[in-house]
Design a protein around this nucleic acid. Structure first.
Lengths: 190, 190
DNA sequence: GTCTATAAATGGATAGAC
DNA sequence: GTCTATCCATTTATAGAC
């Protein structure tokens, strides 16, 4: 990927995580990059192409994270913590998850973008489900039901809590994630 | 409240739950209502006033739900289910939670709107925390830690799961909420 | 309360020179 | 790859008639 293109994608990502896909403009990018709108159109002729390119780039990044976690020597609780810690950085940068951002903008994106978005969702969910499954096998996590459903629950709450944290503060996220880990450790009867 | 005004607010709400606050226009409202843009400006001169009015109206609605649940003769598990069922309707109407919508648009709203949004968040959280506390006392719910933290977790996951359900289907929400209820029933050792 | 008309700014996009 | 110049549609908002 050309230098400028990845520069634009990175900045677009930043704006997607703050203003949202539908609300940032080529002018916003232009001002930050110090080049004219037309120059950005040269790299990404239409905004939908920029949005799609960003989503594809994000998809690759998510698959990278997946592989890193899969090949790491961390145990399941450590992997889960590493996963949940990704949200802390997002909040500290006053951003939201790009997936949540596009989810909220689903009406404003085309089918092609929506398809990639759905693939990203599924990849993230399967990464987390795999961690939970391993932890269940090794008796480090305790929960009833399918690992997949538990993963859906945890990822939903993680993304949701990031949205709340913008208003309620980082502590909201921290205590909520702590509660997740607590729930996985067992019942009040243990 | 005048008829037309509440009509506009209702429609604005629908659009906030689909396109989002920053992405719907007075023209969108105009087309749906069959009156001109200028007529809408007569009722809500500026879009920020419309947005603020909607949030205040939502705040009242949330407090109503709070009172209804508080005064109902349902037991805590029934109250929780009624609460979670609110999400089902939202998904079936292909909408997202208005709170989530504004949370994703936090960069695009002013401080006054953000204040009301935060109040709505806090009210919803306290309603849920109260249900969980009651259920814990009556030994119908089992969880470690504070009811408040558990409420944060459940509300985050509820809102998050609604966002996922747009792409993954209603079943995603249903099974995720089932997992929440399962988790509250006790540990795998029970 | 609703209308026409209109303003002023912004947003996405393209043509063509350098 | 970047620029200037420009286009056209949209968006928020206002003035003033009915």
């Amino acid at each position: 990927m050309r230098e400028r293109q990845s520069e634009i994608l990175t900045l677009a990502g930043e704006m997607i995580q703050t203003k949202g896909y539908d609300s940032f403009s080529y002018n916003d990018l232009s001002l930050r990059l110090g080049i004219r709108k037309a120059s950005i159109h040269h790299h990404f002729p239409k905004k939908q192409e920029l949005g799609l390119a960003y989503l594809k780039y994000r998809f690759e990044a998510v698959k990278d994270i997946e592989n890193q976690l899969r090949n790491s020597r961390m145990n399941p609780p450590q992997k889960l913590q590493a996963f949940l810690d990704l949200g802390v950085q997002t909040i500290e940068e006053k951003k939201i998850c790009p997936v949540s951002s596009f989810q909220a903008d689903r009406w404003n994106i085309n089918e092609e973008m929506n398809k990639v978005l759905t693939k990203i969702e599924e990849t993230e969910l399967s990464v987390l489900a795999s961690i939970l499954k391993d932890g269940q096998s090794s008796e480090e996590f305790f929960f009833i039901g399918e690992a997949k459903d538990q993963a859906n629950l945890i990822l939903s709450s993680m993304k949701g809590a990031i949205l709340y944290a913008q208003g309620q503060g980082l502590e909201f996220y921290q205590s909520t994630m702590k509660q997740i880990v607590t729930n996985l450790k067992g019942s009040p009867n243990n």
